[in-house]
Design a protein around this nucleic acid. Sequence first.
RNA 1: GCACUCGUAGUUCAACUGGAUAGAAUAUCAGAUUUCGGCUCUGAGGGUUGAGGGUUCGAAUCCUUCCGAGUGCACCA
Length: 596
Amino acid sequence: MELQEKIIHTLQLAFKDLFDHHLNIEDISLQPTRKEFEGTFTFVVFSFLKVTKLNPEASGTKLGEYLVENCEDVTAFNVVKGFLNITVSESSWMDVFTNIYEKTDVAKLPANGQKVMVEYSSPNTNKPLHLGHLRNNFLGFAVSQILEANGYEVIKANLVNDRGIHICKSMVAYKHFGDNETPESSGLKGDHLAGKYYVIFDKEYKKQISALQEQGQTEDEAKKNAPLIMEAQEMLRLWEAGEEETVALWNKMNSWVYEGFDQTYKKMGVSFDQFYYESNTYLLGKDIVAEGLEKGVFFKKDNGSVWVDLSDEGLDEKLVLRADGTSVYITQDLGTADLKYSDFKIDKSVYVVGNEQDYHFDVLFKIMRKLGRPYGDGLHHLSYGMVDLPTGKMKSREGTVVDADDLIQEMINTAESHTKELGKIEGFNEEEAKSLYETLGLGALKYFLLKVDPKKRMLFNPQESIEFQGNTGPFIQYSHARIASILRKAEQIGVDYSMTGFEGLAQLEDAERDLIVVLHDFEKKLKLAAEEYSPAVIAQYMFDLAKEYNRFYAELSIFNETNTKVQAFRIALSAHTAKTIKAGMKLLGIHVPDRM
RNA sequence: GCACUCGUAGUUCAACUGGAUAGAAUAUCAGAUUUCGGCUCUGAGGGUUGAGGGUUCGAAUCCUUCCGAGUGCACCA
């Protein structure tokens, strides 16, 4: 980063000296030079022609000459049309490398004193997690790691949706058809057991609807009058009233679900610092409604319902409290936002929620800003697209969902058979082998879901996701394992690849320099990933780095190299690559093995 | 009907936020290696960036009109 800053700074001086014009640093940017041209950085002069009052070629040439003369890092330049391509000296690249090589923790920027809460996962307690949740969880966890690496203090929060009519449906079904079944007696994981009764409810409910329709009711009437749904609604009332038996059943079933979720979270490798439960927060927010009325942000309609008018912001009017004084969805979200702030005094708050709620969060954030909340500008909806299957959309009622636990297990099994086929794990005991399969299976899955820009809807192809070649997690893991093997050998034959081992080295091979350029880019990508809340930036970078290393590895020999300084340098390059891969993959929640 | 999002090689994704001849992976084809780990590397073919119009030195990117896909528009959560 420092290297680019120096060049940019010199460019600023150049504009001053040559054209008597002050340019702001922010207005000067360098981009990587395209491979087919000579140079590493490119400055585009087109937009500055008004200042230079020269044609593009002449402008570029003048600036280039100035750079060579006044910036010690720049040795040469060439101008193609309006593009000034800058060549950096080999010793400068050496300096860049020794600089980053000194760092003990490559993925850690200085603390910025800011606190951010990342809310993700936020499951319903009536059914197990599925493929869509995996994207949510991996994203939320990775973004938390990335923000932390960027100097934030991060609080990972999970807002559990543990109440409401959907929970009561499972409870009603269990009451009727459960026969006191438990996770132990059924051998089912708790969340799967609860999910089973949610499905049973739906099936039986549908039966009742068609029975009523046969008796002459319309579909709408039947849906309302079916005994099961009425019972569920009654149960919700009882629950809200705190009726003992209902609450006991609710507690019992929820505890099963939590046990199941716990296992799945552990397997996924995600964790939380703070849990919120809607059963505790669903009544919050009414005081904010009162406050909003007082401040004139909200207004009351004749029937007593409370609204916010966001038409000046390009949105509509939106209900925030019903005429009967009860909450709607957004009411409790208002309250929860404040609760998070009062608990942690956060500067920023990130919500990892699917893009079908774009409008909801748009409204929520605008309200909070109108109310003048201190964290108002720090609110961000990390909106992600749906995960599609090649067969089409996932629909829980049609049984086309991909269960999270099943999928994870399948990935692990595939990793196992792959690895056994290659037969490279002699010397592993059973436990080590098992943990390796998990590392590889989960690595493949996480990488597959994280490499795509979160905003975009993506296609999950089961066959492709378990591939181990190309732009995949295991490819990157393999690259790391391979380097680890080189380092073991270096250790064995006693090569000193600390900085002193290759001091004074001046000549660089192309493959070496190219690798340094990529390694040097990591910090920039790390910042970009945080700015955009996008783990995909890191994932893509990881792949580029692994590819670049493999090219280096194929082109240059390490242990056949006779110049010991060169040898030490190449091992140092390898070591730093491994360090960067490990740190970067950790941000994505992916482990990298030393052997595989 | 209104609002928002998206449309890029056969397929899955990129494109440093308006920059050069739109790149990777995969699949296909052709090569490399007596190795520091072949889960590797090199190369070839494959594109009217959904279509048209506009803005400008320059557009996948910005504006506009169509076409297509998705999501949201409950006193549901």
